[in-house]
Computed example of a mutant assay.
Amino acid sequence: MNSGKAISIALINAGKTKADLARGINRKPETIYAMCKAKSASTNTLKRIADYLGVTVTELVALGEDK
């Protein structure tokens, strides 16, 4: 699973920007940009992002799966 890919796709699907996400989960924009380039993220971070975007962690993770 590529968490950076999953986060990027989820943001597009939700019509949100990385800056929106940073504000929404109380992180610096630089942190969000780095997460979107990374291949992994902590379970806690994925949960916070999923909650903010209104999806489950399972749905978020599935977006980063190679097909």
Rank of each mutant, 00 (worst) to 15 (best):
M1D: 15
N2G: 10
N2A: 06
N2S: 14
S3V: 07
S3F: 12
G4A: 03
G4P: 05
K5D: 10
K5T: 08
A6G: 05
A6H: 04
I7D: 09
I7E: 07
S8L: 02
I9H: 08
I9E: 08
L11E: 00
L11T: 10
L11Y: 07
L11I: 05
I12D: 12
I12V: 05
N13M: 00
N13E: 09
A14C: 03
A14S: 14
A14F: 03
G15M: 06
K16Y: 05
K16N: 10
K16A: 10
T17N: 11
T17I: 06
K18G: 15
K18L: 11
L21K: 02
L21G: 11
L21M: 03
A22H: 03
A22Q: 04
A22K: 03
R23D: 14
G24Y: 03
G24F: 02
G24L: 01
G24P: 04
G24N: 09
I25W: 07
N26A: 15
N26E: 15
N26Q: 13
N26I: 10
K28Y: 05
K28S: 05
P29G: 01
E30Q: 10
T31Y: 06
T31H: 12
T31N: 08
T31G: 07
I32R: 14
I32E: 11
A34I: 12
M35E: 12
C36F: 00
A38H: 08
A38Y: 09
A38K: 13
K39R: 09
K39M: 08
A41G: 06
S42L: 10
S42M: 08
T43Y: 09
T43P: 00
T43E: 13
N44L: 03
N44Y: 01
T45R: 12
L46I: 08
L46F: 07
L46G: 02
L46P: 11
K47Y: 15
K47R: 15
K47G: 14
R48T: 12
R48G: 11
I49G: 05
D51M: 00
D51C: 01
D51E: 09
Y52V: 02
L53P: 07
G54K: 04
V55A: 03
T56E: 00
T58W: 14
T58D: 15
E59Q: 04
E59S: 04
V61P: 00
A62Y: 04
A62E: 11
L63H: 03
G64R: 02
G64E: 14
G64Q: 12
E65Y: 11
E65C: 13
D66P: 09
K67I: 06
K67F: 06
